[in-house]
Design a protein around this nucleic acid. Structure first.
Ligand code: SF4
Ligand code: SF4
Lengths: 132, 132
DNA sequence: TTATAATGATACCAAGACAGTATCATTAGC
DNA sequence: GCTAATGATACTGTCTTGGTATCATTATAA
């Protein structure tokens, strides 16, 4: 059972790192500091920028800054950016084209677990994840 | 978020199918009935047999029968056979060799969700999944 | 006793997801 | 105009998942 991917994980760590900083931080710095492969981190930051969660400055002394306060960012916000969500009707099996549509007992049990998890993830905001 | 794999799903459906039957059912029959690819189902049934959950008879008129009453089989029993469990300390990320060992807040939040899910899955026995 | 219908054991294979690289273009500052 | 940074995007390697394929063995029934 894997809840989050590295994409999301790295994104969260990056945002945590940026929160508090006032000056833009470059990928090179963050890569070193967070021990995340540079090019990969860069791609992630670019996406976060496109989503409006970060903002970026190009050129020398450029880098990324946080654009949304962490207490306004939910864990599910990040996950939705990097991972495919499970659509409401779907089974908890990847690509679930199952003949037993409708009234599968297993499916309904799993779905209720899924909802529990989603509620829980939704309730987590990034500010509660930052170590001080 | 994928909770169970097809392996497990098929195993559960197969066990459900066998419960109630007194005579052995052959793979060919079950494959047809449950709409599961024959060779794949066969492999799964062989594993369940090796685990003692089913028993098998070779030769003509052979097939598989259920060896453990469904109310004694937990969902987690099946899942443990076909899917790697998440070991206690691990992060909810596949292959989690993360530098921030120990006190990661995200990790502890995810872990508590994991425990919730596992409790839930453990509480489900196969008899409660059989449609009547 | 032999043909047949079944499982046992095991090797192989294809698609997709995931994690990460590589490149070239653009922009901003000194 | 050199340099340090991001923007955009294509490419790649590896692992997992969901299967196939094959050959050996066993039990039954004609
Ligand atoms: S049998 Fe139920 S749990 Fe399995 S794939 Fe179909 S709907 Fe989902
Ligand atoms: S940062 Fe925390 S959640 Fe992410 S991989 Fe490391 S321990 Fe797990």
């Amino acid at each position: 059972m894997k809840l989050i991917t590295k994409n999301s994980d790295y994104a969260i760590r990056a945002i945590s790192y940026l929160s508090g900083k006032k000056k833009p931080a470059a990928v090179s710095e963050m890569s070193r500091e967070l021990k995340i492969p540079g090019p990969f981190l860069r791609k992630i930051l670019q996406i976060l920028n496109a989503e409006g969660i970060l903002s970026s400055n190009r050129g020398k002394n450029g880098g990324f800054t946080i654009a949304v306060p962490p207490d306004k960012i939910r864990l599910t916000d990040i996950m939705l950016i990097f991972q495919e969500p499970i659509k409401p009707g779907e089974c908890l099996i990847k690509k679930n084209p199952c003949p037993e549509l409708g009234n599968c007992l297993l499916r309904s049990r799993l779905n209720s677990i899924k909802m529990m998890v989603e509620r829980e993830l939704y309730s987590i905001t990034l500010d509660t994840l930052i170590e001080r």
